[in-house]
Write a protein that binds this DNA or RNA. Structure first.
Length: 262
DNA sequence: TTCCATGTTCCGCA
DNA sequence: TTGCGGAACATGGA
């Protein structure tokens, strides 16, 4: 689930739930999700603190608990957050639990273990160290900048969109949607795409991410004309009703309309 | 039972 | 040398 719109939804969720609550206890039920830290270090840093602000860069969520202290959350393919009344029945998927002094707790769930939890002194430094490109929704990602970032690249347009070091936040689902909305085949070579079509892709990308975020990344709630709900066998093009094709691009299942995307 | 999955990293190859 | 594509990773659900 977690691509940019999902992580942005998690960020807003954290903002209206766990923000400003004092952390009373940190428990780690599966240390494999920790990146470059330990359960002890996590507890030592967070106990008695409160998250005061949050940020997001691509698919990473940051929650600030001190001037130079941020919790880093990444959700892999299946991660999520759940803020609830403290209970004994901690679900198996909950790998890290932050208990607050108000009787509530924030569960970091990650059933498939591809996510990570860590600490950083600065989200910008963290992003630099990870080689993340500009956030796909950042105002700084103008169409001129978008052209620049893709200039001279090889490979398919879909793999470029999903490359987090070019731009951060787009994954398999929203790459497909962006290319559907802009009428470009996902397996098209990036160097064969005219600059004006790159502008189309840029426009579609921003609109798709904004609309998905507005709909809380609930793909069952997307407007008509979106291909995402039709990514399945028997799925049809929402524009021309032709059966959708599926193939593999950069190792990911890829759905597209052979009539509408060239 | 087998296959597939919205993530990233690492390695081999061009 | 740079950068792209595929395999690997851990786990649950169809």
């Amino acid at each position: 689930m977690p691509e940019l719109p999902d992580v942005e939804s998690f960020r807003r969720y954290l903002n209206r739930t766990a923000l400003h609550q004092t952390i009373a206890r940190v428990s780690v039920t599966d240390g494999r999700v920790l990146n470059d830290t330990t359960p002890q270090a996590l507890g030592r840093r967070l106990n008695g603190r409160r998250f005061e602000t949050t940020r997001r860069r691509g698919k990473f969520l940051f929650a600030q608990y001190a001037d130079d202290g941020w919790l880093v959350l990444h959700f892999g393919m299946t991660g999520s957050l759940d803020y609830r009344k403290t209970g004994d029945d901690v679900p198996k998927a909950a790998k890290v639990v932050l208990r607050f002094d108000n009787g509530r707790e924030l569960l970091y769930k990650c059933p498939r273990m591809f996510g990570e939890v860590g600490l950083t002194e600065s989200p910008d430094d963290f992003a630099r160290a990870r080689g993340l490109g500009p956030d796909a929704m950042d105002d700084a990602l103008t169409k001129a900048r978008f052209r620049e970032l893709l200039d001279g690249r090889r490979g398919t347009v879909k793999s470029a969109l999903m490359n987090q070091s070019i731009l951060a936040g787009v994954g398999n689902i929203y790459a497909d949607e962006t290319l559907f909305q802009s009428g470009v085949r996902p397996d098209k070579s990036i160097d064969k795409i005219a600059p004006s079509v790159l502008d189309d892709i840029h426009r579609a990308l921003r609109r798709v991410l904004r609309v998905a975020t507005d709909h809380k990344a609930d793909i069952t709630d997307l407007p008509r004309g979106y291909v995402i709900p039709n990514r399945h066998k028997d799925g049809r093009c929402p524009k021309c009703d032709a059966p959708l094709k599926h193939t593999e691009v950069s190792g990911r299942t890829t759905w597209y309309c052979a009539k509408c995307q060239k």
